[in-house]
Every structure is written in structure tokens, then in C-alpha cells.
Design a binder for these strands. Structure first.
Length: 259
DNA sequence: ATGTCAATACAATATTGA
């Protein structure tokens, strides 16, 4: 089964891209981030017309996550990340599909460093770690898919220029340590398991001709629990979609696991 | 310092958040 993570940067602005992605790639599970619309504005009828259904956690203006599946909607397990009842951001939805636990994650960006936004990012990651540990304890196949807003290393395989990005929240030692703490619970980074070497970028900024000069970085990750990693067949980035008309600044990032 | 984009408030541009 093909499981995809795709930060759309606005589902209404991106609807033609989304529908053509569904029709061309026919993913078994499509995790979306930054849908940027209220629950009642989610274009579910357009998605149903393409033969898919969905579960979503929207928010007016920004954030918003969803999980789309062909035919019937996924079985929702959780809407929102536990650990802070005062958190108003729509950044987490978790469902079960064919025995696999799937989370669509939109981790806080955290810029600029040194502000409450960065503190929120780190606190959110701590809550995610606690929850991820609880998921592992279930001893089931789990895929944590999303825009993690963390560039794992300074390696050119992860980022076009560590120097240019050095002061960004995506690169800070605290962000990376929080990411590694989750990874080190026992998850496998599917992209790096498939491609131990070589640049695999998932995001290219709209500004400064970043796409044209391949100045990207890797922030969309699919983390596999041991039982999911045992079934890993392939992983990749559908990079071509970043070059299309009215594209998102992210490319769809995916993992294939045995049925 | 954005060679950019989307959504919103508001009513032609400014603000927010990437």
C-alpha cells in the first residue's frame, strides 16, 4: 500500500493539484497538511467525486490536517494531539486503515527562534513524543506521516545549504534533539532507510528561485514503527508535482509497505 | 531583505504565517 504525506498549502487553492494527484497516483492513504480551511469549508464533495473520502481536522485561515482514502473514510482514532487542552491549533489527526495506525501531522514551524512560537514547537514535540511512545506500546504497525518542520541534519542530502538555514527553527539543535528523541523510541525514517545517501528534498521555497536551482530541504517525514518497518518495500518523493502550475511548495512524500 | 504564495479582514490593500 502506498501511504503519502502531502503538505498542500491550501486545499482550495490546490484542489486541481490534489485531484490530479489522486487520479494519477491512486494512493491508498493520503495524509494532508496545511489544508487551511474551516471544517465546514473542506471540499469533501470534490474528493468524493474523485472516488475518495476523508476525515479531517480543519481550522480557519491556517493549519488543518486530513486523511483521505479510496472508497470509505478511514476510522478516526483521535482528533488533536493529547497533552494540552488549551492548544487550539489543528495539527494532528489519527486513524486506522486496514489494520495500520496512521497519523497526519503538521508540526509547528517555530520561527522565529527565541519567541513563543519556538517554545510552542518544542512543547508540541514533547507531547508528540509522549503520544508516539503510547502508540508503540500497542505493538502495531504505525506510520507517523507529515510535515515535521525539522531538517534532520546539516548534510547536503538533507539541506541545500546548512549555512543559509542555520538560524532557522527547522535547523536548531533543540528541534533536532526533539525529533531524534521520537525517532530513537524505535521508529524508522522511511526515506533515509530507502535512500541512505543522496539528496532527497521535499520542500522548495517559493522565493529566490529555490525550485529552479534545487535549493530545497527535507522536512516531510514518514516514521515507521517496527511492525510497519518490517513491511517497508519502497519510499520516495513525487518531486515532479512541485514543478507543476500553481504547485504547493512541498512535494508528496511516500512510503510503500506490504499489504 | 525575501526574486513568493494563500487566507483573512476588509473593501484596494495590509497582516499573518509560512
Amino acid at each position: 500500500m502506498k501511504i503519502v504525506s502531502y503538505n498542500l498549502n491550501g486545499i482550495r487553492a490546490r484542489l486541481p493539484r490534489l485531484i490530479e494527484y489522486i487520479e494519477e497516483q491512486k494512493p491508498d492513504i493520503l495524509c494532508l497538511q496545511e489544508v487551511k480551511c474551516a471544517d465546514e469549508a473542506f471540499p469533501i464533495e470534490d474528493i468524493r467525486s474523485a472516488g475518495y473520502d476523508g476525515v479531517w481536522h480543519g481550522q480557519k485561515g491556517f493549519n488543518g490536517v486530513a486523511i483521505l482514502t479510496p472508497g470509505r473514510p478511514a476510522q478516526v482514532r483521535r482528533i488533536g494531539l493529547p497533552g494540552d487542552p488549551d492548544d487550539t491549533h489543528s495539527r494532528y489527526i489519527e486513524a486506522e486503515v486496514d489494520g495500520v495506525v496512521i497519523a497526519s501531522i503538521y508540526l509547528p514551524n517555530g520561527n522565529p527562534v527565541g519567541t513563543e512560537k519556538f517554545a510552542y514547537k518544542l512543547a508540541w514535540m514533547d507531547r508528540l513524543r509522549v503520544h508516539a511512545q503510547a502508540l508503540l506500546a500497542e505493538e502495531r504497525p504505525v506510520v507517523l506521516a507529515g510535515d515535521w518542520n525539522v531538517i534532520p541534519t546539516d548534510d547536503p542530502d538533507d539541506v541545500f545549504s546548512a549555512r543559509a538555514m542555520a538560524s532557522d527553527a527547522l535547523m536548531q539543535p533543540e528541534s533536532r534533539a526533539a525529533y531524534r528523541r521520537i525517532l530513537n523510541l524505535g521508529f524508522t525514517d522511511a526515506i533515509r532507510a530507502r535512500y541512505p545517501d543522496g539528496a532527497v528534498y521535499t520542500f522548495w521555497d517559493y522565493t529566490a528561485g529555490c525550485w529552479q536551482r534545487d535549493a530545497g530541504f527535507r522536512i516531510d517525514h514518514l516514521l515507521l514503527s517496527p511492525l510497519a518497518a518490517d513491511r517497508l518495500l519502497d519510499a520516495g518523493v513525487d518531486k515532479e508535482y512541485r514543478g507543476r502550475e500553481k504547485a504547493s511548495d512541498h512535494a508528496p512524500t511516500w512510503v510503500g509497505i506490504e499489504d
